[in-house]
């Protein structure tokens, strides 16, 4: 998208006005400062996804749009999660973080703050693996994605 004020609200407004779902949305400038890249995750039957694609393409500030899930792609999301970690939970939590290849990036005697990167499924998996009662706070970035191999989104 053009890296302009208001471009994001046009996308968000389109989704709410037409009753589409946004599961996650992540946006930041690219190597070309006049352009932003937005990765948006949505769901719906094929006709709805087709409509979403067409409607987004109509927005003047959308420069180019691809459906990553049409072909192979890689996705990553970053999650920061703050958990209560005391007594025996401290060891157990550390072990799980290792299994999921996360990092503990902040520690107090009661709390771990964990960094975890991966697909949505992996992050959801981690949340299922730990005791829900220990979760104090979660911040997820939303998914970013790229096509696999030679598949490049370029102008």
């Amino acid at each position: 998208m053009e890296n302009e004020a208001g471009a994001l609200s046009r996308v968000a407004g389109l989704f709410s006005a037409r009753g589409y779902n946004i599961e996650s949305l992540s946006v930041a400038p690219t190597e070309d400062p006049t352009l932003s890249r937005m990765t948006l995750v949505t769901n719906g039957p094929e006709e709805i996804v087709e409509q979403i694609t067409k409607q987004l393409n109509k927005l003047i500030e959308v420069v180019k749009l691809i459906d990553l899930s049409d072909e192979g792609y890689v996705e990553r999301e970053l999650m920061l999660i703050k958990v209560r970690a005391v007594d025996k939970d401290r060891e157990e939590m550390k072990r799980l973080v290792d299994i999921f290849r996360g990092n503990i990036i902040d520690v107090t005697n009661k709390i771990y703050t964990i960094e975890l990167t991966g697909t949505r499924a992996k992050l959801d998996g981690f949340l299922q693996a730990i005791d829900r009662n220990l979760i104090l706070e979660i911040a997820r970035t939303g998914v970013s994605g790229l096509g696999r191999g030679e598949r490049i989104l370029e102008l």
Binding site: A5, G6, S9, R10, G13, A17, I60
Partner: peptide, 14 residues
Amino acid sequence: TVGITRPCVKHNFL
């Protein structure tokens, strides 16, 4: 103005 009219214009500018 840009916010109020956004859903009912083809495009708008400030």
